[in-house]
């Protein structure tokens, strides 16, 4: 198990956005979290990645082959260093920086150069910088946007921006990738490419993938297990077939009781 969340709860004042959620991701699995707008999916992500401090509950992670460790209430940059990387629902690139530099920031937590090294440019710093450029470029090639390396990030087409977010997350060397609506705003062709990319990341790079998505056909084709959330609570878990047939899921999405 790479991610184990127990009883996660997040309150915003009087609003309980996430309510005692238990959720697991196994090694090499593609898991989806779905639910209507405002169900609390992004909030759940934010709690897991340390952007929000959860009101209650625990988050435990384990890089394959190592011991499990608690990351509840850890600061976000430390969680990322542990091997959890994410993308954002509303793309958050460093828009004035180049595409390559965006990925280089992703590499940052694996670097060691300091301020003094930057000024005197000792051999170690120079070598590290060179390696960062190459590694980052390789990430761009991997998601298929290498030719835009020196372009300003904000000038990229929309689909490529989403890919860049993935490349930037991959640069942190995660074992678990969290994608918040990676296909939002993509056309059918881009979505198909994205599905292929995600599969490739899993098989070739041994990543586990946990994604939030509204595009049901993508979710159904891609994921092995699906968690369904509504009003902060988990209402169903299962493989795509089970979830599709689950009356409470149908009710949550259609807003009426069809099982009655």
């Amino acid at each position: 198990m790479v991610l184990d969340v127990r009883g996660l709860t997040m309150d915003f004042g009087g609003l309980r956005a996430v309510d005692h959620v238990d959720l697991q991701v196994n090694e090499g699995e593609i898991v989806a979290l779905i639910g209507p707008n405002g169900a609390g999916k992004t909030t759940f992500f934010n709690c897991v990645t340390g952007m929000y401090v959860p009101t209650a509950g625990t988050v435990t992670i384990a890089r394959p082959g190592t011991d499990a460790r608690q990351i509840t209430r850890m600061r976000p940059h430390l969680i990322t260093a542990q091997g959890l990387a994410r993308t954002f629902q509303n793309i958050r690139l460093f828009s004035e920086m180049t595409v390559l530099e965006n990925v280089m920031i992703g590499r940052d937590c694996r670097l060691s150069a300091g301020i003094l090294g930057a000024i005197v440019r000792n051999r170690k710093t120079v070598a590290e910088e060179k390696q960062v450029v190459l590694d980052s470029y390789a990430m761009l090639e991997m998601v298929g946007i290498g030719r835009w390396a020196n372009e300003t990030a904000k000038n990229l087409p929309y689909g490529a921006q989403r890919r860049l977010e993935i490349a930037r997350a991959l640069a942190t060397e995660p074992f678990l990738l969290l994608l918040d609506e990676p296909a939002a705003g993509m056309n059918p062709q881009e979505t198909r490419d994205l599905v292929a990319l995600i599969r490739r990341l899993r098989t070739d790079h041994h990543l586990s993938i946990f994604l939030i998505e509204h595009d049901m056909s993508l979710v159904m084709t891609l994921s092995e297990r699906i968690y369904v959330m509504d009003y902060g609570k988990l209402i169903a878990v299962g493989d795509p077939g089970e979830v599709r047939r689950d009356p409470s899921v149908i009710k949550a999405y259609l807003g009426e009781d069809v099982s009655a």
Partner: peptide
């Protein structure tokens, strides 16, 4: 540029 993304990237 974006301190939230920056933090999330480690």
């Amino acid at each position: 540029e974006d301190f939230i993304a920056c933090q999330a990237m480690g």
